[in-house]
Amino acid sequence: MKTPITYLENIGTYFIMIKDIFRRPTKWSVMKPLILKDIDDLIIGSLGIVAFISFFVGGVVAIQTSLNMTSPIMPKYLVGFATRQSIILEFAPTFISIIMAGKVGSFITSSIGTMRVTEQIDALEVMGINGINYLVFPKFIALTLYPFVISIAMFLGILGGLIACVYGGYGTMEDYIEGVQLDFEPFHFIYAFIKTFVFAFLLATIPSYYGYFMKGGALEVGKASTTSFVWTSVMIILVNFLLTSLLLG
């Protein structure tokens, strides 16, 4: 059974791990291919699902907004405005990050956890290699490109809204584009990308923690992946609330 002391111990271990990510760095000639591989696995490999979800959720947001605007005095351009605000402020940074906690987070936990189970991490440590730097640092660097994924999600979400709105007969292209351009606040982008960077850090470190410090066998790898998804999602939601209160409140 987990006691408050266990939770405190886990939090302490997590912060020590973060310090160790930057300690005793691995040779650049070894690290470079690891970073490129993680960019491929974590960033490029996620573009398809992110594009698909963003496009269709953008469409759904536009349709829902349009259907709920029953009053004739409400201007039609509000569909574009509401879609833009939903996508930029919350859907792209937060909702996509929760999806990434499932996709990328589970991948990180299970790949590092399998290395732990098969003693590959012990092999690194016996060789005198800082296993945390070797395994987590490339993921951390790869996920600094995460805002690029979120930019694509923003663009495709708004595009999906436009296509659903125009081709579904919910409004004209001119109204939608006018709404998208209405009262544009550049700080909203800054807010969204600040959140994205923080979420990227959580996405790289929390699943790595659950993989690196897992104990047991194959069954525990599965359990660690699930726990990692739950805690990454919880932390994303909590940090989202905190950042929104601080930056927009």
């Binding site: 000639s29 098969t118 590959q120 012990d122 092999a123």
Partner: peptide, 28 residues
């Protein structure tokens, strides 16, 4: 760096070929 270890389950890095596994300590 002066120690070599053969683990019970071999603990080879499964993302590397056999030659890359053997070369790993040299690269490090």
């Amino acid at each position: 760096a002066e120690m070599g270890m053969v683990f019970q389950g071999s603990a080879l890095f499964d993302s590397m070929t056999i030659a890359e596994n053997v070369m790993f300590p040299l690269r490090m």
